[in-house]
Amino acid sequence: MQLAGYGAEVATKMLKASIKIGLVLIGTLAISAVAYEATSLLSDTYRVALGQHVFNIPTQYSRQGAASQLTGADEDSRSYMLEFSAEDVAAEVSNYKTTNGSYRENIRAVLIAPTFDESKRYQSPGYLKDIWNAEGSYRDAIIESYAGRSWLKVYRKIEYPYSWAVLREMPEKNRSVPENVFSFWIANCLSGNSPITQSGEIVICQSYALDQDIVIDFYISEQNLDVIEDVRLFLKSKIELWKE
């Protein structure tokens, strides 16, 4: 689910049409497996089974509900969609901005129990190796300073200036890719027009957190990137609370 992974066709469409907030959030949260196993444990909690894990998820955070509403729920289900209100996040993350004009800074996320091979890809994403080594679709990458921050924007040439990866440091082809992905990579971002933000534009960024063998893939706006590490900790703490 990489925002920076849009191809030429999508990049062209982005030049011709405004991206509505709902389409950005809903479209990027599309997942291949929609079946999951969950049963109502209490009136305000769903008991959700993902792979080998079981979570008791408060209904206020669920974007899917209970699997008792579905038939054919499958024991191999590995993802579940969540949403955290901006107010809940701000209560635990200092300096988290809850609004941008009329846009509410809720965090939408997908809780994932990856397979072994998928887990390895999250720990060392192949496209980040391409960024670091200036290979593949990043052979002719465009690199810019991030205005007002000490970060870098790295674009595929075909996606410039609408989609980019956010890095903490300049990629070095002659140096090995850092083992800890989060030590140099922050997020992938996509910009578009929005009628409800103060500027008339919106930048949505995708990132994720790793909690042992669980992945929390999430979406955050650019104005809250400064506190993304605290957001990761917030999400991981929630997941830990919900584990059986």
Rank of each mutant, 00 (worst) to 15 (best):
residue 53 H to A: 10
residue 54 V to H: 02
residue 55 F to A: 02
residue 55 F to I: 08
residue 56 N to A: 15
residue 57 I to H: 01
residue 57 I to T: 02
residue 58 P to H: 00
residue 58 P to C: 05
residue 58 P to S: 01
residue 58 P to I: 01
residue 58 P to L: 03
residue 59 T to W: 02
residue 60 Q to T: 13
residue 60 Q to A: 15
residue 61 Y to D: 04
residue 62 S to K: 12
residue 62 S to G: 12
residue 63 R to H: 08
residue 63 R to Y: 07
residue 64 Q to E: 15
residue 64 Q to D: 12
residue 64 Q to Y: 10
residue 64 Q to H: 10
residue 64 Q to A: 15
residue 65 G to C: 10
residue 65 G to Y: 08
residue 66 A to P: 02
residue 66 A to R: 08
residue 66 A to K: 10
residue 66 A to Q: 06
residue 67 A to R: 07
residue 68 S to I: 06
residue 68 S to A: 12
residue 68 S to D: 05
residue 68 S to L: 11
residue 69 Q to A: 15
residue 69 Q to C: 05
residue 69 Q to K: 14
residue 70 L to W: 12
residue 70 L to S: 14
residue 71 T to K: 13
residue 72 G to S: 05
residue 72 G to N: 08
residue 73 A to H: 09
residue 73 A to Q: 12
residue 73 A to S: 14
residue 74 D to T: 13
residue 74 D to W: 14
residue 74 D to C: 09
residue 75 E to Q: 08
residue 75 E to I: 11
residue 75 E to V: 10
residue 76 D to W: 06
residue 76 D to H: 11
residue 77 S to K: 03
residue 78 R to L: 10
residue 78 R to H: 11
residue 78 R to D: 11
residue 78 R to Q: 04
residue 81 M to Y: 00
residue 81 M to P: 03
residue 81 M to A: 09
residue 81 M to T: 07
residue 82 L to P: 02
residue 82 L to D: 00
residue 82 L to I: 09
residue 83 E to V: 14
residue 83 E to T: 14
residue 83 E to Y: 04
residue 85 S to E: 05
residue 86 A to Y: 00
residue 86 A to K: 05
residue 86 A to I: 02
residue 86 A to Q: 05
residue 87 E to H: 11
residue 87 E to C: 02
residue 87 E to D: 14
residue 90 A to Y: 03
residue 90 A to I: 01
residue 90 A to G: 08
residue 90 A to W: 01
residue 90 A to K: 06
residue 91 A to I: 05
residue 91 A to C: 04
residue 92 E to K: 15
residue 94 S to P: 04
residue 94 S to C: 07
residue 94 S to Y: 11
residue 94 S to G: 09
residue 95 N to W: 02
residue 98 T to W: 03
residue 99 T to K: 11
residue 99 T to L: 06
residue 99 T to E: 06
residue 100 N to V: 07
residue 100 N to W: 03
residue 100 N to M: 10
residue 101 G to P: 06
residue 102 S to N: 14
residue 102 S to W: 04
residue 102 S to E: 13
residue 103 Y to H: 07
residue 103 Y to W: 06
residue 105 E to H: 04
residue 105 E to A: 10
residue 106 N to S: 15
residue 106 N to T: 02
residue 107 I to A: 01
residue 107 I to Y: 04
residue 108 R to Q: 13
residue 108 R to V: 08
residue 109 A to T: 00
residue 109 A to D: 02
residue 109 A to L: 01
residue 110 V to S: 04
residue 110 V to H: 01
residue 113 A to F: 05
residue 113 A to M: 10
residue 113 A to Q: 07
residue 113 A to E: 10
residue 113 A to T: 09
residue 114 P to I: 04
residue 114 P to C: 13
residue 114 P to D: 01
residue 114 P to V: 08
residue 115 T to G: 14
residue 115 T to F: 07
residue 115 T to C: 08
residue 116 F to Y: 07
residue 116 F to P: 02
residue 117 D to N: 12
residue 117 D to G: 01
residue 118 E to Q: 15
residue 118 E to K: 13
residue 118 E to N: 11
residue 121 R to H: 11
residue 122 Y to F: 15
residue 122 Y to W: 15
residue 123 Q to T: 10
residue 123 Q to G: 05
residue 123 Q to C: 08
residue 124 S to P: 01
residue 127 Y to I: 12
